[in-house]
Design a protein around this nucleic acid. Structure first.
Lengths: 224, 224
DNA sequence: ATCTGCTCTGAATTATTGTTCACTTCTTGA
DNA sequence: TCAAGAAGTGAACAATAATTCAGAGCAGAT
């Protein structure tokens, strides 16, 4: 053989792969999943359409990896927030607030990742993404239940419901469109967090306290 | 003119229109929105593809009308349930339970109407459908607040969150697949209803009572 | 310098569906 | 029965994007 991949080439290939994924992510963040089309993404990434297929077998694979990427980022933010909370109830509040803040800070992306119509089948990776977040929430509810702060319940169902509530209220089509007014966004986050905590059985008064405690670090972490 | 639409013809035309809509509805109930395609629907309705276009200007119009139809049915069921409840809190519980039961009894249809990917733009009618249900829920929360049964709150946001919670938990991709076990379905409905009531501020003990009261009539009305 | 083999290109192909329309069939009133 | 006009038909068309592939361009070894 008279050709072998040298380190330099390997690096360039990896960079190109990232560039394509980043282009897809930007497109999704700007125009939702509908904007994730091979030709425009190729343009953004400064490659030809055919090149995309040298890195991803199909559009479905590209989107799946995009979803996994975004999901991974969100999960780590959630874990970080939860782990630096003082107790199980605070951790739960932190998780919920973080999910809410993330959803709001990149609404189109969040909606695209989670629910927006796509022409290819990405059910599996969407499911995995959802499941991961739900599991995280469920785990925190569970911890609060074990600590005696919440009544016993079907934590998985509860976590699923919370995720649905947060997304519908914040990024769904009925969510208010004021992305600009930071105060209103803060209010919305706090309101849905309060709802979520009460839903799983936190007493109103205590829930209000937890909401306030969780708000600051979450907003700060999001750079808002 | 030597031709005029006679009553018989008018009736036949109306029947055909209904047949096409019904075909679309059945297709959606069986295979989701993806199965709502002109050619297959024409076959189901025993007409040619071209005929569909004599009744609906475009696929988008057909689906919009389908969504409006289903939504109208659901809304009337919701109102009926609420209006026959003894008080504001019971009415709220009835509304929530009814939404849950409806969603469960026709999961694919519900998912299709509300959120499933479609190739044409039906945003407007989906939005109207959602808004109608949310308004109904919000109105009932409002009534309960005014009656002093619930703390003051942003009822619209709360109603949106509840709708999201119900749908994600019951018809979303993470919902359990046991459509067959009636007992499990009943449990799921009651669990999410409980969550929803607590979310808007109903005390745990009282919520449990309301859930049980609301369950029977709703299940009965659904013919389950 | 040059040969080999990998990577990139982008126009052409493919596949899927909604939509159209020239033609056929049916209905009505005389 | 027949002419006029409406409704129905379904094969052909159009539009949109994903996907392919033959050839051009590059990088590495000798």
């Amino acid at each position: 053989m008279v050709y072998r991949r040298t380190h330099q080439v390997v690096k360039r290939l990896a960079a190109r792969r990232s560039a394509i994924l980043a282009a897809a992510r930007n497109a999704a963040a700007e125009g939702g999943m509908a904007a994730v089309q091979i030709a425009p993404i190729a343009v953004r990434a400064n490659v030809a359409a055919g090149t995309v297929y040298r890195y991803f077998p199909s559009k479905a694979d590209l989107i799946s990896e995009l979803i996994a990427d975004v999901s991974r980022d969100e999960l780590s933010a959630i874990r970080r927030a939860a782990d630096s909370a003082p107790g199980p109830s605070s951790a739960l509040a932190a998780v919920v607030t973080t999910v809410a803040v993330h959803a709001l800070s990149q609404r189109k992306l969040a909606w695209g990742i989670l629910a927006e119509p796509v022409d290819v089948d990405v059910t599996a990776s969407r499911l995995a993404s959802r499941r991961a977040v739900v599991d995280e929430i469920a785990g925190r509810i569970d911890a609060a239940v074990r600590a005696g702060h919440l009544p016993a319940q079907d934590t998985n169902l509860a976590a699923t419901a919370l995720l649905g509530a947060l997304h519908e209220a914040l990024v769904g089509p009925l969510a208010a469109e004021n992305t600009d007014d930071a105060g209103k966004l803060r209010d919305a986050v706090q309101t849905v967090t309060l709802l979520a905590l009460r839903a799983v059985g936190v007493m109103d008064a205590r829930a209000r306290g937890l909401v306030v405690q969780a708000a600051l670090p979450a907003m700060a972490a999001a750079g808002a």
